[in-house]
Design a protein around this nucleic acid. Sequence first.
DNA 1: TCAATATTTCACCGATATTTGAAATATGGA
DNA 2: TCCATATTTCAAATATCGGTGAAATATTGA
Lengths: 113, 113
Amino acid sequence: MEQSRVLKSLSAMAHDTRLEIVRLLVPLGKDGLAAGAIAEALGVSASGLSFHLSQLEAAGLLTSRKASRHVIYAADCKALGAVIAYLLNDCCARDPDICACTDEARQTEQAGA
Amino acid sequence: MEQSRVLKSLSAMAHDTRLEIVRLLVPLGKDGLAAGAIAEALGVSASGLSFHLSQLEAAGLLTSRKASRHVIYAADCKALGAVIAYLLNDCCARDPDICACTDEARQTEQAGA
DNA sequence: TCAATATTTCACCGATATTTGAAATATGGA
DNA sequence: TCCATATTTCAAATATCGGTGAAATATTGA
């Protein structure tokens, strides 16, 4: 993944509402959620949400599809993984401290799940 | 790590020059590099660099120490790891796609190193 | 077709972020 | 002390971002 796309993704995630959107959508996988349901879940206006969804979609972190009169948004987990992978590749290289933290996170997560 | 700190870190990294600073400093570990040397390496003005360094330091991603008339900046690898860990914890949970990507990255990195 | 629902687009405004260059501060050495 | 080096601070200009509400678009069902 090129740095310019990583930057776009980081910018997209670096906003309270948008990070919440990602957190909401990732567990739902490809099923995703309609824009209106996302707006309700997060307590934001429809037009405001639409703006944030478009940012995330432009960054490649979300996909959208129409279903009847709804627009369903879903997290693109591969893209999210690629961003994290870039950070690990760039930052983790030769640095045990960073890998250690992510390893702990992974183990904690798997133990808890 | 609380979400507000993660947001601050993501905002700090979501900038071309600042991501370059991180990429430059991480491999150098605790030795770090003087502000002037960073500015030269990246081809940016001293005052511009100072602004970006302060953003990264405020986010907790860099540490600084004075050495004679220099100010040495170093990446805080634990903090970087914590940000990545947060993303994995939040986003990777129950999602094999994301973990798969980071696993590949890890293996590629370790094979290449 | 008409009305209701779902979402996006638009224009406007205020808040933030970034760049620039000059000036201020701090340090070390002659 | 005086000068050169290293860095930060400041103010001004510009650019970008985010929030708001009205209007536009698309879809469905009566």
